[in-house]
């Protein structure tokens, strides 16, 4: 810190600047996390007997594993829907005039400006028996009895996809914006069709954005307690509700801690797959 100005390397970072945030994280994130881990290593709810019983219980119980599996699958479904629906919007954004761009960015950001609870309640109204979808289908004579949309996996995926959409679209818009538009023309003039151009040029170059968007959407979707429980209901059990049940209703903190550690590791594994892909794509994009 006290180094002479002359010998100071302007490209180095002053780690001191990160200290306040690092301290904050240490106190309010790392310390509680360690406490959580410590608690999960106890076999009884009073926390007297050490052991791996909680982990064994979870990992040998087909039901608990199925909850974990369905949660990870839910995240994958939501991420896929967001990617398929979000990519065209981001692509369009880079190709329209400034006025339309403002409108698109407003539409993308709008969901972020309302609370998740409000958005989720809107979905209850949309998906309900007398909701917009059922009412429209019935008035068109396509269905006689209302479809069951609320409290289904389909409903949860659709609602979560809308709620988390900005997390996918914004990184995509940035990534696509970094691609030199001349590359499209170059690809075309060298004889590639538009699909070939898309798959061989645009998509590989946008991969960093795709990876970032997928990571954010995935992490947000699997931990979305409110949307999962309001649109999914009480009989669809995902990890956040399972955790809540054990910690809050049953006061079984060691098991709840073990569930959260396992959940955390599972999510880290998925995210690290994403980042590995991202690292590979960086080489690809730079090539």
């Amino acid at each position: 810190m006290g180094a002479a100005p002359a010998s100071r390397d302007v490209t180095s970072y002053g780690m001191g600047l990160a200290a306040p945030l690092a301290l904050f994280f240490l106190l309010f994130f790392v310390a509680p996390l360690l406490q959580l881990f410590w608690l999960s290593l106890h076999n009884d709810t009073a926390g007297l007997h050490w052991g791996l019983g909680q982990y064994l219980h979870f990992l040998t119980d087909p039901f608990s594993l199925s909850v974990l599996g369905s949660t990870l699958l839910l995240g994958a479904e939501v991420t896929a829907v967001c990617l398929v629906l979000g990519f065209p919007i981001a692509w369009l954004y880079q190709r329209v005039g400034p006025r339309l761009q403002t409108i698109i960015i407003l539409i993308v950001l709008l969901p972020l400006l309302t609370s998740v609870v409000v958005r989720t309640f809107a979905w209850i109204v949309i998906l309900g028996r007398q909701g917009i979808i059922n009412a429209t289908l019935q008035s068109l004579g396509i269905i006689d009895t209302p479809l069951k949309l609320l409290y289904t996996q389909f409903g949860v995926v659709i609602a979560l996809a809308q709620v988390q959409m900005p997390l996918m679209t914004l990184p995509l818009i940035t990534a696509l914006g970094r691609i030199d538009p001349n590359l499209d023309d170059a690809s075309c003039s060298l004889g590639a069709g538009s699909w070939r151009t898309f798959f061989r040029v645009v998509l590989p170059l946008s991969l960093p954005g795709v990876i970032a968007g997928c990571t954010l959407t995935y992490a947000a979707a699997i931990t979305a307690f409110i949307t999962q429980s309001l649109v999914g209901g009480g009989q669809m059990l995902f990890m956040p509700m399972y955790l809540y049940q054990q910690a809050s209703t049953l006061q079984n903190w060691p098991f709840a801690s073990a569930i959260s550690i396992i959940f955390l590791l599972a999510v880290l594994a998925v995210v690290s797959v994403f980042t590995t892909l991202g690292r590979l794509s960086r080489g690809y994009g730079g090539a």
Binding site: G128, L150, S229, L230, G233, G234, Q235
Partner: peptide, 19 residues
């Protein structure tokens, strides 16, 4: 069974929506 609500408050919403 049409719905297993996550909490009693959610039942109220389900009545309102005709669920």
């Amino acid at each position: 069974l049409a719905a297993v609500a996550a909490n009693p408050g959610a039942l109220a919403t389900l009545f309102q929506q005709g669920q």
